[in-house]
Simulated scan of single mutants.
Amino acid sequence: MTDPDETALMLQLESEGVVLRARIDGRQTWCDRRLLARIHRYTLERLRKEIEPVTASQFLRFLACWQHADGEHRLEGPRGVAAVVAKLAGFEVPAAAWEASVLPARVRAYKREWLDQVTLSGEVMWGRLWGAGAAPIRRTPVCLFPREEAASWSALAALAAPAPAPTGAAAEVQAALLRRRSRKGWPRSSPRAARPATASAACGCWSCRHGGAGRRA
């Protein structure tokens, strides 16, 4: 719009709130306020429809496909095992469950030597990250994760571990408090401190460490 009279008229309409000024392709233009509001509303409605939450069944279906548990998305061979491990990195299940259910559900015609292959090569590591305690090998929760992520998972496990029991001066202060409680008739002993969770990881042949873990007793 180059006519001075038209420009003055549009400026007056703008001051009255009838039109709004905008720029399209670098050029100044004017738009009816109500029409612009309608365009804005339609645009928001379209964008909201694009990000509407899915149903629980749709989400579970997506997870099954993404984790290769769906029959049409299952993987094959040692490379498939490595890909599944990358998806489930940091997830702990009993050692026996990895070869009994987790990997066979995601890798077509799964063979035990495939997991041995990727662990022996050092591509995949395994370990106990989220807890500690004695348990039979078959029931010990174990994580599998790519070797290049080992430092990251160990750091996360260290952050999640409980604080160690006090030592030195802190232990002496705690003992003094317990003696005071004892003199006042409070319980003489404090609850046993939980055993701190220590992260541990290893590489090498899976079957050599968890031999028979995936077999039925």
Rank of each mutant, 00 (worst) to 15 (best):
R195K: 13
A171D: 04
L35R: 11
R38Q: 09
R195S: 04
L129W: 01
P166Y: 01
E16P: 09
T167M: 11
V173L: 06
L60W: 02
R188N: 07
A135I: 09
S200F: 01
R128A: 04
P196L: 01
P141R: 05
F145G: 09
C143L: 01
P78V: 15
C208H: 15
L115R: 00
S15N: 02
A163Y: 09
A89T: 12
E52G: 02
T7K: 13
D25A: 11
L63R: 14
K111R: 15
M125P: 02
S207A: 12
S190E: 07
A56K: 11
P136Q: 03
R61F: 10
W66E: 11
A165S: 11
V81W: 03
A169S: 12
A175D: 04
C205V: 13
A109I: 07
G211I: 06
S182V: 12
T198R: 11
T29L: 04
G131S: 10
I24D: 12
G211S: 13
L120H: 02
A97T: 15
A171H: 02
A56P: 09
V107R: 07
Q12C: 15
R188Y: 07
G26D: 07
A109G: 14
K111C: 14
G90S: 04
A83Y: 04
A86N: 10
C205W: 04
A109H: 10
E99Y: 02
A89E: 07
S182G: 14
P146N: 05
G204V: 08
A97F: 06
T55Q: 07
A22V: 15
I39S: 14
E123S: 08
